[in-house]
Amino acid sequence: MNPTMNLYAVRAIYLYEMSRTARTLLQSVVSPVISTTLYFIVFGAAIGTRISQIDGVSYGAFIVPGLIMLTLLTQSVMNASFGIYFPRFVGTIYEILSAPVSSFEIVLGYVGAAATKSIVLGLIILATSDLFVPVRIAHPVWMVAFLVLTAVSASLFGFILGLWADSFEKLQVVPLLIITPLTFLGGTFYSTNILEEPWRTITLFDPIVYLISGFRWSFFNIAEVNVGLSLGVTLLFMAICLAIVWWFFKTGYRLKN
C-alpha cells in the first residue's frame, strides 16, 4: 500500500459504487432520460411552440442546459447521499471506518462515482436533446468545466446530506423540498431576467441561478449573471461543501461515537 495514498481503496469504493449503477440501470439511467424526453414533449413541443425566442435562442434549445442541470443536480445529490447513507443504515460503514483510508480517499471514491454517474447522465440527456432540437455549444471546454464542477459540487453536497441524515425521510426531504424547487426557481425553464422585482433580486440568492446561467452561457453565449461570478459561486459552493465534509470526518459527527 502506498503510505501516502490508498489508491486501491479509492478504486474499490469507486468501482463498488459504479457497479450499483449497473445493477440499478433502469432507475439510474433510463428513468432520467424518460423524464427529460417528457419535459421536451411538454415544454418544448407543446408549450414551447407558443413561446417566442429568448435572446435569439429557440425556447426548445434554451431549456436544454437547464434540463441537464436539473438532472445533474438531483442525480448527483441523490447518488452521493444514498451511496454513503446506505452503509450507515445497514451498518457496513464499520468496514470503511476501520480501513486504512483517509477521509479524502473516502470522499474521492464516493463523490467521484456519484459525479461520474451524473456526468454520464448529463451527456446522455444532451444527446437525447439533440434528437428534439439542434443544440450548439459555443464554448465546449467551459461546458465540460461547468458540467464537471457542478456534478462534483452537488455530489459533495449529497455526500454531506448522506452523512447528516439519520432516516430515509431526511434523505428524501432535501432533494424534494430544497434542490428541486431551487432548480426550478433558478431558471431551468426560463430566463430570470424576465422576472419582475423583487423576484429577480430574490433569485440571486439561489446559488443554482449561477450554475444554470454559467452552463447556459457555455451553450449560447448568453448569461443572466456574469460568467466569472457563476464560476466563482460554483467554486465557493464546492469549497464550502469540502470544508463541511472535512469537519464531519475530523469530528466523527454521525460517523463515530
Binding site: 469504493i13 463498488y16 457497479s19 468496514e95
Partner: peptide, 26 residues
C-alpha cells in the same frame, strides 16, 4: 474485524464484497 452484527451489503455477491474489503485495506 468480524463484527457482532450481520452487517452485509444485501444486493452484492460474496466475491464483490470481498473485493471491496481487500481494496479498502490497500
Amino acid at each position: 474485524l468480524v463484527p457482532q452484527e450481520l452487517t452485509t451489503d444485501a444486493f452484492e455477491t460474496p466475491p464483490a464484497t470481498m473485493r471491496l474489503s481487500r481494496g479498502l485495506f490497500g
